[in-house]
Amino acid sequence: MKAETLSYFHMPELTLVGLGIFFTFFMLMLLWVFQHQRKPFYQRLEQLPLADD
């Protein structure tokens, strides 16, 4: 039924745009996160839970 409904949905641009945005952002996010100079920053962040409480 859901499949049937979606087959009535004739806005391929919308889904395509969605996929495009998704793809672009995902890749950008990966590039960003794996930048080399960000390492020290992560090293500081990952210590945050370990402070005594």
Binding site: A3, S7, P12, T15
Partner: peptide, 21 residues
Amino acid sequence: IWAGPHHLLNTAMPEWAQTLG
């Protein structure tokens, strides 16, 4: 939120895009 495969399938989207999704 976005890439539920069932969401991309069965729509009028071109075949290649469905596959990519």
